[in-house]
Structure formats: structure tokens, C-alpha cells
Amino acid sequence: MSTAPYLTEQGKVAGRLMEKYAKDRRLEADRLNEPVLWARDSKDAKILVKSFMMDDHFKIDFLSDVTAYDNQDGEDGEKRFILVYQLYSLEKHIRIRIKAPVDLNESAETITDIIPAANWLEREIFDLYGINFNGHPNMRRIMMDERFEGHPLRKEYPIKQRMGFNDNVHFHLGGHALHVDNTLLEDGSPANTQALPEGEK
């Protein structure tokens, strides 16, 4: 097939990464020949995201994805989880992937303050892997119920484990816990129709 313009741009990326960023970091290519840069930790990954957005050679302006995977078998270093940032440039149509190892019981650094799109993605990682993000505005579960225990995408979580819940549902409005009185008046109407977010009382 004919070569698309993005391929020539993508070809330049590895050179620039090698020259400027990969001095003390590991640079790899994945099966699609796209660059994967290993950050030292999640703090370093955040610095990398920031500097890629500044770098005119990349013009990174778009966050495709933030995710993680379990490194239980230790194939990718000693730390337990690997955070994966997929970055994209809408102008140059290039992709760069940053990977950052995070250990069990270690908190990662949030990138919500740079790219707000990471908000839900980081919540999903917290929910499914149990990685806590420092400075995240709303670090709550997103997929699973709030009463759920455990983190289902960890390798040790059995696929057929089930969990029952009792009936006390918590109410939230964004990051604020709501104090909703569920008791009913004698005529069946709710006692409290004015639920106020915490701190706005």
C-alpha cells in the first residue's frame, strides 16, 4: 500500500525520543513499530506528558487512553502494575506510548490537572486495579458499586467470584457525599427534598 504521510512523521518520532528523552530511559518499539517510552515512575511519566505537549516535534495535544496492566509475572520489571498512557497528536497524527511502573500500595501521580480527560480513566484504574492517584479530584469507584470489595482486573481476582450487597445505597453528586434522608412521611412523600452537597449547607 502507498505510504501515508503520518508514517514519515511517525518515523521521526523515535529519533527525537532517542535524542532527547531516552538518555536514561528505556525506549522500545511495539509490534506495530510505535514508540514505547518507559518512565522511571508515574511522577516521571507526568513530566514526560507535560514536556511532550510542549515539544514542537511532537505537538501532542490529545490523550487517547490511560490504562494499566498487571505485571504479576514480573516480566516488565519488579513493580506490580504498569500504567500506560497513549498520547496522540491531532496535527501530526503520531502516537507515543508512555509506560510507568507502579508498585502495590504505591500511589501514582494524577495527570488530571494537565489533561482533564484522564479523570474517569484514572478512576477506572483505581476501581479495577486499586492504584491510588495523588491529587485526583474525585477518587471513587466508577464501574463497580461503591460497596464492592477488591479489584477485579488484578490477576489474583477469580473470574467467578460474586459479591452480594445490602440495601444502604450511598448518594453522591460528583465528589460530594449527599445526605439524603430516605425516610418517608406518613403520606408517603419523602421527608427531605432538599439534599445539599456537603460543605454547601
Binding site: 511495539d30 509490534r31 506495530l32 510505535e34 514505547v36 487517547s64 487512553d65 490504562t67 496492566y69 509475572d73 516480566e75 500506560v84 497513549q86 502516537r95 506510548r97
Partner: peptide, 24 residues
């Protein structure tokens, strides 16, 4: 599938639909 990883995406009707697969 040989060990390795890759992120492939297509322009779905609602936007970028991507599959990131890590194979061991």
C-alpha cells in the same frame, strides 16, 4: 499470538475505537 503489545484503532461511528492488547 507472539509476546508483544500493540494499540490499534479504527474510526468507529462514534469515535476512536481502540484495542490495546498485551500478549505474553
Amino acid at each position: 499470538v507472539p509476546p508483544g503489545e500493540g494499540y490499534s484503532c479504527v474510526e468507529g461511528p462514534n469515535g476512536e475505537l481502540g484495542f490495546y492488547i498485551v500478549s505474553r
